[in-house]
Design a protein around this nucleic acid. Structure first.
Lengths: 245, 245
DNA sequence: CGCTGCCTTGATCTTCTTCAAAACGTGTGG
DNA sequence: CCACACGTTTTGAAGAAGATCAAGGCAGCG
């Protein structure tokens, strides 16, 4: 089965002014701002292109910038000394990551890595803090988003504490489908390069166990899958695996 | 060994105006505000007393209030249908919990429960949103706090994904000691009623396993413990259990 | 056509859970 | 003050879930 994943390829250096403004005005927390304010904010951002697998920043680096995804997919992850990775989130255009604090003496707690060709818009922490101070409504939007992420992280903690690998993978697939899903002949295709290893890092298990679970899901007709891709074939049954809670 | 835990007992109904103002001005995100602003904000809060084990709100209830701990200890937890609890955090005076969003149609994702006699200050979500809009500096402080909690939650995810129970418990004890620690003859005492069950819910394991680990820690001289209490005897060695990362 | 990753599958081993029961400590009422 | 009763903690033994180790298979690509 040839990979159905097809994220619009582009020269990461070519992040046009047009795209920048469109993205910034679509970013949830700038939405609603007058056009001239957006233009002013836009001038504070610098664009930057990244190749697949390229690190945008690494855990431990001084945290001095905040980024907005303009195009592509960005993985947010943490490491352990033993080399194991923990995948916290996959970010799509319009989402932000990096440093939220004005203080310059902190370090990034995690690593951000381009999963596909990516265009990022970066801003210095201090500049972003100025934006927040200048537009209080933006602060509130950012707060809502961060609060939502906290809620999601707590849910993740609950699942890791109480659920089997099978349930966690089912849940992760549904969550990814909500975010990255693209209807097609295969069902709801998760539009990102998603191998067994990524899935394992996302759910706190090993590649082998993830593979076994995925294979079983396919046998049961819940999903369709191939090299580096997964599509939901039967959402209801997949939800039934979680069994509710 | 008699329990050395001694959280100042008080009539939860008796949360004096004096205490209220002192607490509110000590809350990190109101600190720095002029006294008259604090007094104005104070009028929006209603105080409420809770007995140990009493629920302040339950997961699923409509999320319409935000609380600040004035005195006591509050447990923040989630449930599973199978009856297992997941303890997310233990909150101390000055910390907030509950609903951050203005939207009234949401539900609390978790349960808040008084762990000791507790005095809470409650405010309607909409009123709190008004406060945030009126004092933009407060929004930024709240944002910083929530961002910090997100970082901590991500760390928890990493640990549950990659660490053994032993390491997770060692880490949890150190974190609790940082927050609730009180130096004494026993070492650094965690000033909260902390049984094996709570420790298990906090680290995603079972009471029995938590008991075994705790017993071993005591045998090795890392901690001193008894019924419903734990004190750190040798912080360095306990940190060595985590092994760094 | 063969190489290189990714994916799968099997066998074994460790960790942790589960079930069961006994020991302990704490507060209570006699 | 003592003895009892309850909830907490401890300990043991058996079992399950998942990790680890080790090959082998398959797909895409040069």
């Amino acid at each position: 089965m040839k990979s159905p994943i097809d994220i619009h390829a582009f020269d990461p250096e070519m992040c046009s002014v047009d795209l920048r403004l469109r993205i910034l005005s679509q970013v949830p927390f700038f939405a609603g701002l007058p056009a001239q304010d957006i233009a002013a904010i836009n001038r504070l951002f610098q664009e930057q292109g990244f190749q697949p697998e390229q690190s945008i920043y690494c855990a431990g680096d001084p945290a001095e910038r905040l980024y907005v995804v303009a195009a592509g997919r960005v993985k947010l992850l943490r490491h352990t000394l033993s080399g194991k990775n923990v995948l916290l989130d996959i970010l799509t255009p319009g989402e932000f990551f990096g440093s939220l604090t004005a203080l310059g003496d902190e370090e990034y707690p995690d690593t951000a890595q381009a999963q596909t060709s990516t265009c990022g818009l970066g801003i210095g922490s201090a500049d972003f803090r100025t934006v927040l101070e200048t537009y209080p409504a933006v602060s509130l939007k950012v707060l809502d988003i961060v609060a939502g992420r906290l809620k999601a992280a707590h849910e993740q903690v609950r699942q890791l504490s109480a659920f089997s690998v099978e349930k966690r993978i089912a849940y992760a697939l549904l969550r990814l489908a909500d975010k990255l899903g693209q209807p097609g002949e295969m069902g709801l295709l998760i539009q990102a390069p998603l191998g067994r290893e990524s899935l394992a890092e996302l759910t706190g298990t090993t590649t082998e166990t993830a593979s076994r679970v995925i294979s079983q899901f396919q046998k049961d007709g819940l999903i369709r899958t191939g090299r580096q891709w997964v599509a939901i074939a039967n959402r209801q049954q997949l939800e039934a695996v979680i069994g509710d809670d």
